[in-house]
Amino acid sequence: MEKLKKTPLYDSYEKYGGKIIDFAGWALPVQFEGIIPEHEAVRTKAGLFDVSHMGEVDVIGEDAFKFVQNLITNDISILEDNQVLYSPMCYPDGGIVDDLIVYRFTKNHFFLVINAGNIEKDFEWMLKNKGSLNVDITNISSSVTQLAIQGPKAEEILQKLTDTNLSDIKFFFCKRDVLVAGAKCLVSRTGYTGEDGFEIYSDRESATGLWDKILQAGKEDGLKPIGLGARDTLRFEVNLPLYGNELSESITPLEAGLGFFVKLDKEYFIGKDVLVKQKEEGLNKKIIGFEMKDRAIPRHGYEVFVGNEKIGEVTTGYLSPSIKKNIGLALIDAKYSELGTTIFVKIRNKLNEAVVVSKKFYKKNYNK
């Protein structure tokens, strides 16, 4: 663990029973109490996540709007100040550089949140595509801490620590300069679990105090610290993609099922021409949801077959803690993507029967 990157909360993990693993070069807790109780806590009460490994980039200048608009597939012209949106960011061939959250502070100031394993790659890509635009692009990841509180009781718990009325922060909006337990924070309401909740950005010096005070404030409400394991099962059940699984440089946003976030009527964005053509000609491969008919549990990377033909691979698979079924997502040949199609997942050299189902495994409970 010595060579791994660490968040400001690394020394706090042991105090709460964290089991540390290597995640994209970071020393992070895969679990505290256990994946199942942590997952259930978020679905029924609340959970607190340390997501300080995520990257943050400031984009400031008179061409900030144009730069971000060219960079991503979604359309930031719909945003008002302090509004937030989700978007893929593509290569010219349509493959995904990363998926990110875009905060508009003003027309000349955007704040981008990117995935931990892609920080250096993303930042270089942004600089490469700056061109002659008048914009300053700054990687501020090393100075920012991010916590996330998620679950039905998230607002009630966090409200104990701030005088700001959190109910005024609507879904996919943010508020700056919020005092949380005495620390100045950016608070937003997006989420990566399918439950209501908040992201809390602060400086690194405030991280440990915020973590401890939030957990203390939620102790009687059942708030638990949550590791990467439950973070993955939670996001997977509500079909929220993970870079490296459902998203990659060899998968386009359309193939990943993210067409809603690809605005082909925009004047320009990197990769637009390829995605327009792909939309017109149809997809050769798609991310689908499936449910196992046999008892085996699918896992990332397992091969998918129809007859003797390999048609794709599992991107994510679990015994779902919420619906108690063995389910998964897979990238497969599009001609087998129709709901109800029988497919087979190769698990320990045996082909196990599964059926294509809706990717909406679990109903989202966002406060909109």
Rank of each mutant, 00 (worst) to 15 (best):
P37H: 06
S52I: 02
E62T: 14
K121M: 12
I35S: 01
N118I: 06
A64Y: 00
V113F: 01
D63V: 01
N118T: 13
C90D: 08
N129M: 11
F111K: 13
A46Q: 00
S77V: 03
V135G: 10
D136I: 02
K128E: 15
F105H: 07
H39G: 00
D98H: 05
Q83W: 10
I35T: 12
I72A: 11
D58K: 14
I96R: 05
D99E: 05
D93A: 09
G47H: 07
S77A: 13
S143Q: 08
K128D: 03
L133M: 13
D50V: 11
L127P: 03
A116M: 02
Q69G: 00
C90I: 13
I114Y: 08
L127Q: 04
I119D: 04
F49C: 02
D136Y: 09
M89Y: 02
D58V: 02
L48C: 04
W125P: 06
M54P: 00
P88E: 12
S52W: 06
N74C: 06
K66T: 14
G95C: 05
I137M: 13
K128M: 06
W125I: 01
L127C: 00
D63H: 08
F110Q: 07
D75Q: 14
G55H: 02
S143W: 09
F65W: 06
E62A: 02
I137V: 15
E40H: 09
Q69V: 00
I60P: 03
I114K: 07
I114N: 14
G55Q: 00
K130G: 05
S141M: 06
H109N: 12
H53Y: 10
E120V: 10
K66D: 15
K45P: 05
I137H: 05
Q69L: 06
V51F: 01
M126K: 11
V84R: 00
I96V: 15
E38S: 09
K107P: 10
G95H: 11
D136T: 05
V59A: 03
A46I: 08
E38Y: 02
K66R: 09
H109D: 11
A116Q: 03
Y103S: 03
F49M: 10
D58T: 12
M89C: 15
T44I: 05
L71P: 06
L112G: 01
M89P: 11
S141A: 11
L48H: 10
E80F: 09
D122G: 13
I119Q: 12
I60F: 13
S142P: 05
I60L: 09
Q83M: 09
T138E: 10
I137F: 10
K121S: 08
G61F: 09
K130N: 09
D81E: 14
I36R: 03
N134C: 05
I36D: 03
P88T: 04
I96L: 11
A41S: 12
W125D: 00
F67N: 07
T73L: 04
E120K: 12
F65S: 12
V102P: 03
V84T: 15
G55D: 01
S141C: 03
E124Q: 12
P88R: 15
E38R: 04
N129T: 14
I60Y: 08
G95S: 06
K121T: 08
L79T: 02
G94I: 13
Y103K: 01
P88F: 06
